[in-house]
Every structure is written in C-alpha cells, then in structure tokens.
Measured scan of single mutants.
Amino acid sequence: DFYKILGVPRSASIKDIKKAYRKLALQLHPDRNPDDPQAQEKFQDLGAAYEVLSDSEKRKQYD
C-alpha cells in the first residue's frame, strides 16, 4: 500500500505526501544505509509510491 509506505493517511494532501517523501528519502537512501542490502529496494518502493500519490490523476486511479 503506497500510503503505508509513505506513512500518510488516505486523506493526506499533496503537501503532506511531499513532506513525508522527503523525510523518508533521506532516511532510506542507499548511500546512507550501505550495510542494508534491501535499502535500494525500499528506496525504489518509496519513489514509486511518491510518483503515484503526488500526481492527482494517478492517485485517483490508485484509489
């Protein structure tokens, strides 16, 4: 669930989604977690979630 990945409720605004994405991107970035083999995958999932939820048309289709 993309909302769960970003840690935001379904009613979150685009601004809230962007804020959550930036915070998590810093935490999950593979360069900051060189010892975590799943860091790259988590970071890619985060990017996919943000791409869908930050675009109003894609978000409507997802919901």
Rank of each mutant, 00 (worst) to 15 (best):
L24G: 06
G47Q: 15
K19Y: 08
S56D: 09
G47T: 09
Y21Q: 03
S13G: 10
F2V: 01
L28D: 06
R22Q: 14
D1R: 03
S11H: 04
G47E: 12
G7W: 00
Q61P: 01
D1E: 12
Q44I: 06
D45F: 07
A49I: 06
I17K: 01
S11E: 15
D45N: 15
Y50T: 01
D31H: 07
E51P: 01
L46A: 09
L6S: 02
I17R: 02
F43K: 03
Q38M: 12
K4R: 12
L24I: 10
E51A: 11
I17N: 01
V8K: 03
E57I: 14
V8N: 00
Y3G: 03
K42T: 06
Q44W: 08
P37S: 11
R59I: 00
Q61A: 14
K19E: 13
E51K: 12
A12W: 01
K58M: 08
F43Q: 04
A48S: 12
S56V: 14
A25L: 11
R59F: 03
I5D: 03
K60Q: 13
V52Y: 07
K23I: 14
N33M: 05
D55C: 11
R32Q: 09
R32K: 11
E57Q: 10
E57K: 13
D1T: 07
I5L: 13
Y50V: 05
A20T: 05
D1Q: 04
A48C: 07
P34M: 13
K58T: 06
D1L: 04
P34Q: 14
L6G: 02
K4N: 13
E57V: 13
K15A: 13
S11T: 09
K60D: 12
S11C: 09
L24W: 06
Y3P: 05
L53I: 03
R32I: 10
P37H: 08
I14R: 14
A48M: 13
D45Q: 14
R10W: 04
G7T: 03
S56T: 14
D31E: 10
I17L: 06
G47S: 13
Y21V: 01
H29S: 12
Y62H: 06
P9F: 06
D36W: 05
D31W: 05
I17G: 02
S56Y: 09
G7D: 08
R59Q: 00
R10A: 15
R22L: 13
S56M: 15
